[in-house]
Simulated scan of single mutants.
Amino acid sequence: MISHEVLSHKKELVELRRDFHMYPEVGFELHRTAQKVQEYLENLGLEVKRMAKTGVVGILRGSKAGKTIMLRADMDALNLQELNDVPYRSKADGVMHACGHDGHTAMLLLAAKVLKDHQSELCGNVKFVFQPSEEKFPPGGALPMIEEGVLEDPRVDYAFGIHLWNSLECGKVGLRPGAMMAAADEFRIVLKGKGGHGALPHQCKDPVVAAAQLILALQTIVSRKIDPLQNAVLSVGKIQSGSAFNIIPEYATIEGTTRSLDETVRQTIKQEIQRITHGLAIANDVDFEIEHKEGTAVLHNDEALSQFVFEVAKDVVGEKNVIFVPPTMGGEDMSFFLQKVPGVFYLVGSANTEKGIDKPHHSPYFDIDENSLLIGTQMHVEIVLKLLREQDGSLSKDN
Rank of each mutant, 00 (worst) to 15 (best):
V56D: 00
M51L: 15
D74M: 02
K49I: 14
A77R: 01
L46C: 09
V48H: 02
L46D: 05
G58H: 07
G45I: 15
K67N: 03
N43Q: 13
L44F: 14
E39I: 07
Y40H: 05
V37E: 03
L60P: 05
I59D: 04
K64E: 13
L41V: 05
E39P: 04
T68N: 09
V56S: 01
R61K: 10
L46G: 03
I69G: 09
T68M: 06
K49H: 14
G66Q: 13
R72L: 09
A73F: 08
K64V: 13
L71G: 04
L60I: 14
A77V: 00
K67F: 11
T54M: 05
A52P: 09
A77F: 01
N43G: 15
G66K: 12
D76N: 01
R61H: 12
M51N: 12
K53H: 12
L41Q: 01
G62Y: 11
V48G: 04
T54C: 07
A77D: 00
L78M: 09
L78R: 00
A77Q: 02
E39F: 09
R72A: 05
A73Y: 06
Y40L: 10
T54H: 06
E39Y: 10
D76K: 06
E42K: 00
K49W: 15
E39V: 06
V48W: 04
V56H: 00
A77S: 02
K64T: 12
M75I: 08
L71H: 09
T68Q: 07
M51G: 15
G55Y: 00
D74T: 06
D76S: 05
I69P: 11
A65Y: 13
V57A: 07
L78N: 00
A52W: 03
G58N: 10
K53A: 13
G66N: 08
K64N: 13
A65M: 14
D74Q: 04
A77T: 00
V57F: 08
Y40M: 05
R50G: 04
V37I: 15
E47H: 08
A77W: 01
A65T: 15
K64D: 07
T68E: 03
D74H: 05
I69S: 11
T54N: 02
G62F: 15
R61C: 07
I59S: 06
T68A: 09
L41C: 09
T54R: 01
L41M: 13
A77Y: 01
K53W: 13
L71D: 03
Q38E: 15
D76T: 05
G58V: 10
K49M: 14
L78W: 02
G55H: 03
R61I: 09
V57T: 04
I69T: 13
K64F: 14
S63N: 12
D76M: 06
V56P: 00
D74I: 08
M70P: 12
N43F: 07
E47L: 11
A73M: 10
A77E: 02
L71K: 10
